[in-house]
Design a protein around this nucleic acid. Structure first.
Lengths: 237, 237
DNA sequence: GTCTATAGCTGGATAGAC
DNA sequence: GTCTATCCAGCTATAGAC
């Protein structure tokens, strides 16, 4: 069965307590908590109340299970992103277009609608994983919608060179993934005043920060600048 | 032996080819490439040309080896950060103080002086890992210098409320870690025009982006705003 | 489709010679 | 300090009864 077929089959399972669904839920939770290599199938099946054979019957292997966990959430997230993007437009009664686009990109994956903090942390783990299998999962599901957002951002920032735009998009992914991963450092430093697991608060602070970053002047192009920007690139204060 | 003692002992090993050092180098490389749970001690010792007993003799366990790998790099990184911070000051012939501070924080960990991209990726992996052991490693070694940088940033941004500052510091960590992790998405999207493994280029684009983000207006404080910033928080364009 | 039982490996850790 | 040989717990995957 293909990954997409897994996703469709799963999303049609509205009962929510079938063997398949319970395995997916347990796997999502434990992969997220312990990492894919940090948890055994035995632990997953014990948590789901099934046996090891069930996993191999439904998903073929541990990696097949990971694909299914991933596909179940990612297809609706990508769809919602594009839906929200289609609704973005200039209007004096709305926030600036740039803010709308950034929010359309970030919200679907970060709020609770698609697996919430659990799936978000799993995505963060996969992003730090460089293996070919993992990387292909991310590229396969995200690159299409990313391209659409890059186009929309380019249109909203007509004076920004493509290279600068790409870098800033990359930085946006970084803030998103790191916030979702929530390593706990900022809580420790601030005595829980800042809590990245509160995705609404995270977005409220993140969107304006990123929008402002996107609006920075492009950096000068001369190659020498790349090694000595400190003495040459002075944006107006 | 304590972690600090490991670090000191290692940093005094100037020959660079002792058993200890070869194990540390191999482990750093393979932990970085495959994840701590993704590589076995057998693979590490084969790569280092030693036997499994050597690891247990010198480091006690696989986790002890991870600690030693981490401590060897992190102590000099934290020191260099503070050294660079001490040199930051207002001067018309230099870039803005804010840029200097951000660069002082980012450079030591991202450029090639302390393990380079290899150790950087390992740090990114550990950041995505939520286990108590891993988290304590990061907190233990980084929180002191982070506090000093927060103070310096607060002084450079006297009108920014502490909460906003903390969030933006958190976002800065995200861009740093994600760039170091370099999941390859931006290369794929841009046909290698942007290459996050080029740390000089990364810093050239990253520092101005972050500085601009730090300079954004603080978000309004009313709790309601956290859930509906989209209709209420409109920074000037 | 679901289960039990187990095959077949690989893992971290250690004992004990030198 | 360094090595070989080994223990045994834990893993994924499968065979085969029901």
């Amino acid at each position: 069965m293909t990954i997409a077929a897994h996703a469709i089959k799963t999303s049609n399972d509205t009962r929510g307590d079938s063997t398949r669904t319970r395995i997916l839920d347990s796997a999502e939770h434990l992969f997220s908590e312990c990492g894919v290599n940090g948890v055994s199938l035995r632990t997953i099946v014990a948590h789901a109340g099934v046996n090891t054979a069930a996993v191999h019957y439904h998903f073929g292997s541990k990696y097949g299970l990971l694909e299914a966990v991933f596909a179940r959430r990612i297809v609706p997230i990508a769809k919602e992103r594009l839906d929200l993007l289609a609704k973005c437009h200039q209007n004096p009664s709305l926030p600036p277009l740039l803010h709308q686009i950034i929010a359309a990109f970030l919200e679907p994956g970060m709020t609770g609608r698609h697996g919430g903090a659990t799936f978000a942390r799993l995505r963060a783990r996969l992003a730090a994983d460089a293996s070919e299998e993992t990387r292909s999962l991310l590229v396969q599901y995200f690159d299409d919608s990313s391209g659409q957002f890059l186009k929309a951002l380019a249109k909203a920032l007509p004076n920004l060179p493509a290279t600068d735009l790409y870098w800033r998009f990359h930085f946006m992914l970084g803030t998103m993934v790191y916030t979702m991963a929530n390593p706990g450092r900022i809580q420790a430093l601030t005595k829980n005043e800042c809590d990245p697991s509160d995705m609404d608060a995270s977005l409220a602070y993140l969107v304006p920060f990123l929008a402002q970053g996107f609006l920075a002047d492009p950096i000068p192009k001369a190659p020498i600048m790349l090694k000595s920007y400190k003495n040459n690139n002075k944006p107006k204060p």
